[in-house]
Amino acid sequence: MALNTPQITPTKKITVRAIGEELPRGDYQRCPQCDMLFSLPEINSHQSAYCPRCQAKIRDGRDWSLTRLAAMAFTMLLLMPFAWGEPLLHIWLLGIRIDANVMQGIWQMTKQGDAITGSMVFFCVIGAPLILVTSIAYLWFGNRLGMNLRPVLLMLERLKEWVMLDIYLVGIGVASIKVQDYAHIQAGVGLFSFVALVILTTVTLSHLNVEELWERFYPQRPATRRDEKLRVCLGCHFTGYPDQRGRCPRCHIPLRLRRRHSLQKCWAALLASIVLLLPANLLPISIIYLNGGRQEDTILSGIMSLASSNIAVAGIVFIASILVPFTKVIVMFTLLLSIHFKCQQGLRTRILLLRMVTWIGRWSMLDLFVISLTMSLINRDQILAFTMGPAAFYFGAAVILTILAVEWLDSRLLWDAHESGNARFDD
């Protein structure tokens, strides 16, 4: 018995066209964080690309023209004298008006014999932002004059995390709450300039795509075929072959399989920071003279006294001054041990922890910024005066060393310790 099946006739004509040209192939790229070699397709503007294995951002879609970056830099340069030299806060102490600005706080630190601690604050609040705007201006002028731009481009990517104007702005709020127990506070004209400078700096850093600047100024022929001998440069993120001198053909720094002496430098910085954190938390970090009496505060006791007036601000200072430094030390110690013992479990967790400490590390400088600003506000000789204690130097040095330890660690070593050939990683 035959089955009668109805015929289905399409209502619209289906047209099949042959592909007349070869589909576009992607360029081969190595991930600078996990060293995976993959094919990167062509990316349009405002599109980002991520590593298929570790999800690290390979290409950032946010990109401004150099002219727009230069305009932002010149605007920031105009704001800087007002943000640093004009009063941020006014207080009335014992019937006398006192003005506080950024430069005055750094000068008070240096004047009291601790120039190293003052230079830490100076670099993060004044030096690094000033280098940022002058570097962008150098790129703008240098591109037109045919100057060598490689050193500036190499420095810009590392400079971003040292620009800490946003953290200093939080420190202004913390210092205001600490001082309000002794005097009446009012915002100064410099505060508005400083807030504007923070906003412009944040926007500029978020749109400063150094890798795209490398592509514009020093374009290189990408690798179009897969080759395990391809290496990625950690300076400019170019994937290719080393030249005859073993250097990256684009930025001219040595092109090595792994960062040289990464573990040794990381261990040295980490152990030194552990040693410095002990006096930083045991010795007094601030000293207040009130009517001839002397009151010393460690980091913890200062947080407890701050909690009596504002528990939320005390929580912020606790996280930045105690929780973050010790968390960074514990995480980095764990990561280094996992590399030495070739741990194969929990790779995803370790990668996330490394990215976390990379982002939060700079916030530990908050305590030094609060001390710097408070020193310029309260300084009335023996009637009422505020000065920093010996722990300030140890704390600042420990924070900087932990930042350097994270920067010096080559994250690809975590993958080397893991089993080879993993296309995915999980716990």
Score class of each variant (00 low, 15 high):
2 A>I: 07
4 N>Q: 10
4 N>H: 09
13 K>T: 09
15 T>E: 09
18 A>C: 13
21 E>G: 11
21 E>M: 11
28 Y>F: 11
31 C>S: 00
32 P>R: 10
33 Q>S: 11
37 L>H: 08
40 L>P: 06
44 N>G: 08
44 N>T: 12
47 Q>W: 09
47 Q>K: 05
49 A>F: 07
52 P>W: 11
54 C>V: 00
56 A>T: 12
56 A>F: 11
59 R>G: 08
63 D>P: 14
70 A>D: 14
92 W>N: 02
99 D>S: 12
101 N>P: 10
108 Q>K: 11
110 T>H: 03
114 D>T: 03
115 A>C: 05
122 F>H: 13
123 F>W: 03
124 C>A: 06
126 I>N: 10
127 G>W: 03
133 V>M: 09
140 W>D: 04
143 N>F: 15
148 N>M: 03
154 L>Y: 02
159 L>D: 03
161 E>T: 14
162 W>Y: 05
163 V>W: 02
169 L>Q: 04
174 V>L: 15
181 D>V: 01
183 A>Q: 01
184 H>D: 13
185 I>W: 07
191 L>M: 09
195 V>Q: 05
207 H>T: 12
211 E>I: 13
212 E>K: 15
216 R>Q: 08
217 F>H: 11
218 Y>W: 06
219 P>A: 10
224 T>A: 09
224 T>S: 09
225 R>D: 10
230 L>E: 08
234 L>F: 09
237 H>N: 08
238 F>M: 05
246 G>K: 11
246 G>E: 03
249 P>E: 05
250 R>Q: 15
251 C>S: 03
255 L>N: 03
256 R>Y: 13
257 L>Q: 05
258 R>Y: 06
259 R>K: 06
261 H>A: 04
265 K>S: 03
265 K>I: 01
266 C>D: 03
267 W>D: 03
273 S>M: 03
276 L>K: 04
280 A>K: 04
280 A>P: 03
280 A>T: 10
283 L>Y: 06
293 G>N: 04
306 L>K: 00
308 S>N: 07
313 V>N: 15
316 I>M: 13
321 S>E: 01
322 I>V: 12
326 F>M: 05
333 F>W: 06
337 L>D: 03
338 S>V: 15
341 F>H: 11
343 C>Y: 15
344 Q>I: 12
345 Q>I: 12
350 R>I: 07
354 L>C: 12
360 I>T: 03
360 I>N: 02
363 W>Y: 12
372 S>L: 03
376 S>Q: 08
377 L>H: 01
385 A>M: 04
385 A>S: 10
385 A>V: 07
386 F>H: 00
388 M>G: 07
389 G>D: 00
389 G>S: 02
399 V>R: 00
404 L>D: 06
405 A>R: 00
410 D>A: 00
411 S>V: 08
417 A>Q: 09
418 H>K: 09
420 S>G: 09
424 R>H: 15
426 D>M: 13
